[in-house]
Design a binder for these strands. Sequence first.
RNA 1: AGGCGCGUAGCUCAGUUGGUUAGAGCGCUACCUUGACACGGUAGAGGUCAGGAGUUCGAGUCUCCUCGUGCCUACCA
Length: 927
Amino acid sequence: MRDELPKAYDPAAIEEHWAEYWVSESLFHATSLDQSPTQGNFTMLLPPPNVTGRLHMGHMLNQTEMDILARWHRMRGDRTLWVPGTDHAGIATQMMVERQLASERTSRHKLGREAFLERVWKWKEQYGGAILDQMKRLGASVDWSREYFTMDAGLSRAVREAFVRLHEQGLIYRGAYIVNWCPDCQTAISDLEVIHEEQLGKLYTIPYGIVGSNESLLVATTRPETMFGDVAVAVHPIDERYRHLQGASVRVPFINREIPIVADPWVSPEFGTGAVKITPAHDPNDYAVGQRHKLQSINIMDETAHLNDIAGPFAGLDRFEARKRIVAELEDQPGYSVKEHSHAVGKCDRSKTVVEPRLSTQWFIKIQPLAEKAIAAVDQGHIRFTPEQYRKTYDEWMRNIHDWCISRQLWWGHRIPAWHCAACDKVTVARETPEACQHCNSKALSQETDVLDTWFSSGLLPISVFGWPDQTSDLAAFYPTELLVTGFDILFFWVARMIMFGCHFMLDVPMPDGSARTLKDAVPFREVYIHALVRDAERQKMSKTKGNVIDPIEIVKRYGTDAVRFTLATMASPGTDIAFSEARTEGYRAFANKIWNAARFLFMQRERVFAGGGGMMLGSIDLATVDRNEAVLLTHPANPDAPKQANEVDESHLEDRWILSRLYATAATVNSALEAYRFDEAAHAIYQFFWGDLCDWYLELVKLRTETESQQDGRLSFVLFNNIFESSLRMLSPFMPFITEEIWHAFYNGHPPARSIALMPYPVSAQQEVDEGSEAQMAQLQSMIVSIRAARKDAGVPERESVPVLLRTDDASVFQQNLATIQRLARVTTLEVVAQLPDGLAHRATPAFDVAVVYEKPVDTKAERERLSKELAKLHKEKENSDRQLGNESFLAKAPAPVVEGIRRRNAELATLIERTRTALDGLPAA
RNA sequence: AGGCGCGUAGCUCAGUUGGUUAGAGCGCUACCUUGACACGGUAGAGGUCAGGAGUUCGAGUCUCCUCGUGCCUACCA
């Protein structure tokens, strides 16, 4: 409990405490046994960061958005569950540990598989999951009791089950195909893990000697070093240049192996020389040609992409070194030529090594049957994408999908549950280690050494974290999850795979009531929200190599988590990347400071107001009791379940009706914005309300009233302020959980109605509760005050001096009723209503009134003339526009009545404004 | 090669179904250290909405073209 908040807001002093509190109090734990939710379920999975990961801005954006939604839903009464965990990240983690081994002058091969894995586990225990600690520091309201790791026993069991089932269903097969091979990681990788880069390379034209002739066939290639694996040269069947050569043979340079010339329509005659060397073991196209022509495949490289013995004189060389030497030796040959050629080169996403297409035996998922359900699920609207455009991206990818290579030649990961039989050479796939070969009963079994692609296990997460394949109560309660929030970079890697697996496996799981599950309830989530990429302030992609990575923890240390979260929220408008700017974060730290100080004001006033007559000291006020006693507790929107009390607002005060209306309007805006994932709109609305309405206006008027009104009235107005402030804190809480928690506890003097503000109801309100009349009147009043202030500046009145003001208006009632407000906020002595304003005074005109400030010093005539002339020109221009519109027959005929009416009214206003401004201008003394 | 997006104030971005005067934050200018807050207050300046054409009574918003820019997908050697 704090009696007094320090003068300056210092996030570092409060955030750590609450971060720990939320975890130690298990505030965000949710179980299937929880009371049936009043609103509904809200379940999300955290996209599991790699165990090797450090938090970056993308994570922070992702977590901020998810946390805002989670906290918001929780406060709205939904049973809210957000499940955290980490991914074992096969290649990434193995590389990390291998690097460590290398520094110790050893290697995984020296250690052996078992010792190596032990080492990785040890590494994981020691260094892994640092990212989750960072998440805790950021206040993510996840259920830590459910934290998982993708290689936990339960999740591993789900992986084996899924693999075996798919195999039983004939959807997993093993075979030799061309795969993407990374010579650095020394494993196969999937199509998705290959990144294409446009590169300026060379196209070599190489003469292949024609058998039985002195002539050569010129063959164009970008990869001369693969020539030792050539098994044919292909030309287009109707290419006139080569028709006579079809059926002939050529000799591979250096090794002189004779290979046939075949005709295949795949060859494009326009490209290169129209003759293509066919290397089935090292190119997917060539492999297809080879299949069609029943050609053999000759592998000429080892796992590290060094040429093997088949390459004759070049054996043992690295592929690129071999290319150089080969080209050097060919240079003098007649017919040889080189030209520059731009083409896409595939690189390994992880190691950035150029991928080598390689013929090897791998495990694949026959993806078509899975994709069909996944396409249907989205087509039928069971999964909704936001922004919607990603639906198309997803659909296109899904329809052009290739079989998924799921085996990896790594050690770290889920080992494929298949056993090779030494006796019959067949494979036994089983959930648990089999006793004997299921084909020949031999006991000479050895487990497959390959592990599964990391994404195989993460694709299963929505079902495996809830206990699948068992039909658990969690699975019944929380599946399908409501929402997935993620970046588009893992749309295919992860989102698509979850949809495929979810739809495939969950269709077999009956609904909680025993009925059959349809696609609608087999989907892993009902909504996918795809967020933008976080870039640096110059819109550059953040990357380690560029050195422009912004470490969120660093920024958080400097500005506070709340400010960073708010920055990300305000900038998270859909479709655009976020250029993260520290200047903005600074601005939102100022916002936090503003809130902090508004709270300080509140606490100080509380003391002042209640210390007098009531005898209630700050340290002993039970605000809840006060509220009841005064019968002004703002039960709505604070507590949606309780009825609104009729006498909660003293109707005689315009600003009371107005600020309530503003609160309702803001709550309505925030709720509907969050409904649509418009974090920016929601955050802006709160910002505007808190700063622009509550602090700039209402708070100033509370000052006035507590100083001047009777004590009873002062108390009433003050209690309203209290309640509005408390509601505002709750409204802000999902966005800035730390500062709101801190102030909220201080607000209740250590006797809060709940353990956390995060467990309180969220303000709700319908748009119809907005009091438009009060808002319009207040707008008039504000306009009056702003006009007087401006005129004061023109007249050169010192800030602190009060002056008489003359007012010309048709209806002065609002101004007269709120005279004290005007006098206070615009520093006015008397406000006299006159029929006509005298010439030569600093003056402002609005459609509803004109004001002039009476001050002895003459106005700066030149400046005033300039300002008025400029103003007049603007008004004239606008008037011309509206005149033109009103003179247009078809506009009057076709435009809707309210629009015409609006322009008419404005036109009339303009006429008055022009006249008054003209008068004021003419009234200025000659220069 | 296909597909998607972006171009609005000096900077970073909003602007939902076409409709009255295009907004915000930061920055900038001037004044103000007033008992919540200088991480503040008050008042300002600043935009031919990339360019062109079209549809319409009316276009930042819809259509087409041009220019600039970013991204995703792809097996032409």
